[in-house]
Amino acid sequence: MEAIKIDNITLEYKSNNNSIVRAVDNVSLTVNEGEFIALVGHNGSGKSTLAKLLNGLLIPRLGDVKIYGTSTRDKAKIFEIRKNIGMVFQNPDNQMIASIVEDDIAFGPENLGIERNEIIRRVDWALEKVGMSEHRKSTPFKMSGGQKQRLAIAGILAIKPSIIVFDESTAMLDPEGRREVLAVAHELNKNENITVILITHYMDEAVNADRVVVMNRGKIVSDGTPSEVFAHKDLLESLHLTLPLPTSIAHNLGRLGIPISSDILTEEQLEEELCKVLK
């Protein structure tokens, strides 16, 4: 089933020196329900603009974005869309509305006018899903970035969306926080069948995705499985995107004349391959 259908969309914005920049340039993309997609590209490639086009925070000038068949142009149904597609942003501090964890997570369902007992059930469930149940009554002010970001995810989960977009949600976190957030994203995708779009500029976060979509200058330049996409080393380098470290080590060893497979994504694969070659 098609969760998201993006059909030839284009959107420009005016930059500070008054020139027109085409942030998203005639992009089409279909995302199926249950997919885990990594959307990568360097800053200014248009990936974050694309994210905001998905839940109607921005509306394309040309073309159409449809979430489960509903166009984001349909103003009357905008909340239908936002209920379906949740968004987690970059800075966890600026997504927190209330000072107490449970109050903050209840904010979304409260806005939707959901009945009180159901809200409590959802808050319980969302906190459990992100592994923060014991912090229910605490204040997020002194928590680590990873914990705060998991709370932001819980706040979105309480809306019960079918799709979650992570808009560079790992960019401000330390490695531990990044791992936590990624683990939650994969867990939700696997066990709750939530469609995930992970926007990032860390290529190593893309290795476990079902599909990697690379953007540059507002266009999609590559779209395929991680191995397919990372095989185009030169293309990625020309876009200033660095390969995941294991992949890049394997590529370099290959250039040194060592017969090693270039189709390597993770450290485990690299280790196995090195054992094979050196034994």
């Binding site: 942003f89 449970e102 109050d103 209840a106 979304g108 409260e110 006018g113 009180r116 706040g155 809306i159």
Partner: peptide, 23 residues
């Protein structure tokens, strides 16, 4: 911050219904 917060409020369906409930 205000800018980002505004997006976050929208993403969490602020003003979706006049019949807001309370936990």
């Amino acid at each position: 911050r205000a800018d980002e917060l505004a997006d976050a409020l929208d993403a969490r369906c602020y003003n979706a219904t006049p019949h807001r409930t309370k936990m």
